[in-house]
Design a protein around this nucleic acid. Structure first.
Length: 892
DNA sequence: TGGGAGGCT
DNA sequence: AGCCTCC
């Protein structure tokens, strides 16, 4: 739709390596007035620079050999943003003085109001005094502003992929590529659109360039930049009805500074020759973005207030007071140097909602307020489509002394993924209830509720927002048949998409291209979502579970292939790029640090393609099987990382890798490394085991179970073990890493995992709290039943087994592979298990339970003494042989 | 003086 | 978790 679209293409501007540019300080030179007309010569000027730059690696005459100002950066500042949005929503307000109010503060106002002397950040009282007819609109709800803000940013991405947001009303865009292409095409009329800083009303001409003028070609580029800026502002107004100010220069700092020199709805170009003039025109250092309140105070103490004073101050002195990094950046900024790239914006990383008030002094008030905030935040979250991994509560306590800055305190905690399973507008209330409990928990950590308190602000926030993995194992466990079907389809789809994206060198640009091809994207957020979650795969032939026929499709490039095939060397990084696409947000640090052997019937290539979270869940379900293979390492919360000090496991793995390389069929030998691991971890494990509390009985069982399992194996000796606690006792994961002979075995107990998977179902089973509670209890018992037999003790509760009849109609009617069990009528399940709940379970779950019970009753109970730390005398082992979901990843 | 958001430590 | 910064 726009001729500029072509500039988004990757080839555009590929011959300039901007990242490696050495940005020199602008030379001070004068500028001559005159007319500009450079169509024929412009490319000459440009190419001259380009050639010299390419051919000379090191030159003594750097100023002429290098592109000093290679970039063209635009800064757009929306005029009185909130007011504009309100005037668009209600055009009647257009010719009235309008103010946007947040509490008793006027955060912004339209230009009509400014005629009366009303201004931003003025108290409502003062504003009303200056303009009694001022129309006030509450701007506390940012929904509309946020929406428009993203529409604007998204609009700008048509011109370049490099769009950075600075708050709701400012955007920086790097149009270097587009400028370069226009110059290459040579068909541009070179004139400056809008103002020229310091040379207003004048025009430029190449012929008039004084000898001191910058010769890097930036004049041409900035001239083209000004035209593009004008085009953009024009289009922005016609499409969205938004007016803004534009700044055109060669770095972010300068573009921003110059954008504000002509307001409103105007644009200004800054050439390097005028940079110093602009800098010196600033009254205060504070006007340099990056110099905030506190650095300003420090500078004031050094009796530095102006930009000029920073310029003449010695770097040494600044470093003494500000520290080296800050001093350097401040110094550079004050010299007009800013080499920071334009950071393309993405989906918001956090989502928060807050409210301030004069006084909040009771728990009930707080609860009510938190609930209110939560409710609106959850609505936003629902729209966003992602799911948070952490929740944060922030409060501002009343400060007796007139404390200038807002003294906030916050507490945060992880959020159970199950909370957001089946999160929809229908379940919003339930989710709200759950988060509210978490919030109140945090609240008591922040505020001593036994003492009188006085809060002036509450903020609720979700962070670590991650894409809902549609191939989450949780969906597999979903009670509805449809959901399970979706699970399979999404898995297939995900793999198909991945294989397609793998071929794209620059996924990000690819996204932008797709975006620019969209007719009129309703919203970037929406677009990103729909394009990656609902996009029609349109290829029914893709058989992701059949590597024989489709392996080539999945792994297009060699490097990737070598990563994925069993027995080859695991280099560890090639999959990174393919996961940048946003589907894979649950793996932040992707590298393959650990090796395992997967069960023989599991296809490594399919396994490798799974998201880290799924891999982890699967690894857990492999249970007692010895596995080698690759698991995505997810950072702190990674199960494997919890196992042992990272450095050691990494070095161990490296050695193993070598071993695998030289002899792919051999087992990993870790003789010498074993020692290290043992030494470093025995003491820790003892401590951890001892630290088990009554609450963690469940984990004790599971831990013991692992031990039992191992002990039952010949020549097995448990050398070390570590257990890591999660937030709640159901979230704990026990990991046991032990040495058997010379082979390293990884055992991850599956009991707690079972609790988790099942537990996450509770909200989908019933909204009735009592049923949910029953369910939770059942989950625990189920887990129990997995690790012990006979009369199990959990805390003070004694669990017995019970026999029930299984109805015929519970037999699974599904086309998916059947679990290897023979139907039996009589099964043992824990006595207290509610039969109704059992019957309400999805068939798959039931089957697993049935299977488990069968195995248990068939297996010989091996009674042994348990861990000395356990006060429960009798334990027996139960080997989990059910693979459940595993069977879907089977080769055969 | 608001209601966000992000980065660094 | 706090601090600083930006709007």
């Amino acid at each position: 739709m726009d001729s500029s679209d072509e500039c988004v293409s990757p080839e555009c501007g590929s011959d300039i390596d901007l990242e490696n540019e050495d940005w020199g300080q602008p030379t001070s030179c004068s500028y001559s007035d005159g007319q500009i007309h450079i169509p024929a010569t412009s490319s000459h000027v440009f190419q001259q620079c380009n050639e010299s730059r390419c051919t000379e690696t090191t030159s003594s005459d750097r100023t002429s050999a290098r592109l000093e100002h290679p970039r063209t950066i635009l800064h757009f500042d929306i005029d009185c943003f909130y007011a504009q949005v309100e005037m668009i929503r209600n055009p009647e307000l257009k010719d009235k003085p309008l103010g946007i109010q947040q509490k008793y503060l006027l955060v912004t106002c339209n230009y009509k109001a400014r005629e009366f002397g009303v201004n931003k950040m003025m108290s409502v009282k003062d504003a009303k005094e200056k303009c009694p007819n001022l129309v006030l609109i509450s701007g506390e709800d940012l929904t509309h502003y946020r929406k428009m803000s993203y529409q604007i940013s998204e609009f700008l991405t048509r011109y370049s992929s490099k769009v950075e947001r600075l708050g709701f009303d400012e955007n920086i865009i790097d149009i270097t590529n587009m400028v370069q292409q226009r110059i290459h095409l040579g068909n541009c009329v070179l004139e400056i659109k809008g103002h020229i800083y310091g040379k207003d009303g004048a025009s430029i001409s190449k012929d008039n360039l004084s000898p001191e003028s910058c010769k890097c070609g930036c004049h041409t580029r900035l001239a083209v930049g000004s035209q593009i800026a004008e085009d953009i502002r024009d289009a922005l107004f016609h499409e969205l009805g938004i007016t803004c100010c534009g700044g055109i220069s060669y770095n972010k700092l300068l573009s921003k500074l110059v954008a504000g020199t002509h307001k409103p709805n105007q644009q200004t170009t800054l050439f390097p020759e005028q940079t110093q003039e602009l800098l010196k025109s600033l009254k205060h250092v504070r006007q340099i973005p990056g110099v905030g309140w506190s650095t300003c105070k420090v500078l004031e103490a050094m009796s530095i207030t102006s930009v000029r004073e920073v310029q003449s101050a010695s770097l040494e002195n600044l470093e003494k007071e500000l520290g080296k990094p800050l001093a350097m950046t401040i110094k550079q900024l004050c010299d007009g140097i800013d080499d920071t790239p334009v950071h393309p914006y993405g989906l918001p990383q956090t989502m928060s909602d807050e409210d301030s008030f004069r006084k909040l002094a009771s728990v009930s008030e707080a609860k009510e307020k938190i609930r209110e905030l939560l409710h609106s935040l959850l609505k936003r979250l629902l729209e966003d489509g992602r799911v948070p991994k952490t929740f944060r509560l922030t409060v501002r306590k009343f400060q007796t002394g007139k404390n200038k800055y807002t003294c906030r305190e916050s507490r945060q905690c992880p959020v159970f993924p199950s909370v957001f399973l089946n999160f929809s507008s229908d379940t919003l209330e339930q989710v709200c209830n759950q988060i509210e409990k978490i919030a109140m928990n945090l609240f008591t950590k922040l505020v001593d509720t036994n003492q009188p308190f006085h809060l002036t602000l509450i903020n609720v926030a979700f962070a670590k927002l991650e894409q809902k993995s549609k191939i989450s194992i949780a969906n597999y466990f979903s009670p509805t048949k449809q959901k399970r079907k979706e699970f399979e389809e999404n898995l297939k789809e995900s793999n198909a998409k991945r294989s397609r994206l793998e071929t794209d060198r620059d996924t990000e640009d690819n996204i932008r291209i797709l975006l620019s091809q969209e007719k009129k994207p309703a919203g970037l957020l929406k677009w990103l979502r729909t394009s990656f979650t609902n996009e029609d795969v349109g290829n029914n032939n893709t058989r992701v579970l059949d590597p024989e026929s489709d392996g080539g499709n999945i792994h297009r490039n060699q490097k990737s292939e070598s990563m994925l095939l069993l027995g080859k060397v695991f280099e560890g990084t090639s999959v990174q790029r393919t996961e940048k696409d946003g589907m894979q947000t649950d793996s932040d640090q992707r590298s393959y640090k650990y090796t395992f052997r997967l069960p023989k019937d599991v296809d490594q290539s399919v396994f490798s393609e799974l998201p880290a979270s799924i891999q982890q869940e699967l690894i857990q379900s492999f249970s007692t099987e010895t596995v080698t293979g690759k698991i995505k390492c997810n950072g702190k919360n990674d199960i494997l990382q919890q196992m042992s000090p990272a450095s050691e496991i990494t070095s161990a793995t490296k050695r193993q890798t070598e071993s695998v390389k030289s002899n792919p069929s051999s087992d990993c030998r870790v003789t010498d490394i074993s020692r290290k691991l043992i030494d470093s971890r025995t003491s820790m494990s003892n401590k951890l085991v001892q630290s088990f509390t009554e609450q963690n009985t469940l984990q004790r069982y599971s831990f013991s179970n692992v031990q039992e399992t191992l002990k039952s194996k010949q020549n097995t000796k448990i050398q070390s073990c570590s257990v890591t606690e999660g937030v709640t006792h159901t979230q704990n994961q026990s990991v046991c890493n032990c040495i058997q002979g010379e082979q390293q075995i990884l055992l991850i107990d599956s009991c707690t995992h079972n609790v988790r998977s099942l537990h996450s179902l509770h909200s989908s089973i019933s909204t009735d709290e009592s049923v949910q509670n029953k369910w939770c209890l059942f989950c625990k018992q189920y887990a129990m039943s997995k690790c012990s037999e006979e009369n199990a003790l959990v805390g003070d509760n004694k669990y017995l087994k019970q026999t029930i009849d299984i109805e015929d109609d519970l037999q699974i009617e599904t086309q998916r592979p059947q679990l290897p069990i023979s139907p039996e009528k009589h099964l043992e399940i824990p006595l207290d298990v509610d039969k109704d709940i059992f019957l309400s379970l999805p068939p798959d779950i039931q089957k697993e339970i049935i299977l488990d019970c069968q195995i248990r009753s068939k297996s010989q109970a091996v009674k042994t003494g348990v861990n000395a730390n356990s006060k429960h005398g009798k334990m027996s082992k139960s080997i989990k042989s059910s693979k459940g979901i595993l069977s879907y990843f089977s080769k055969c």
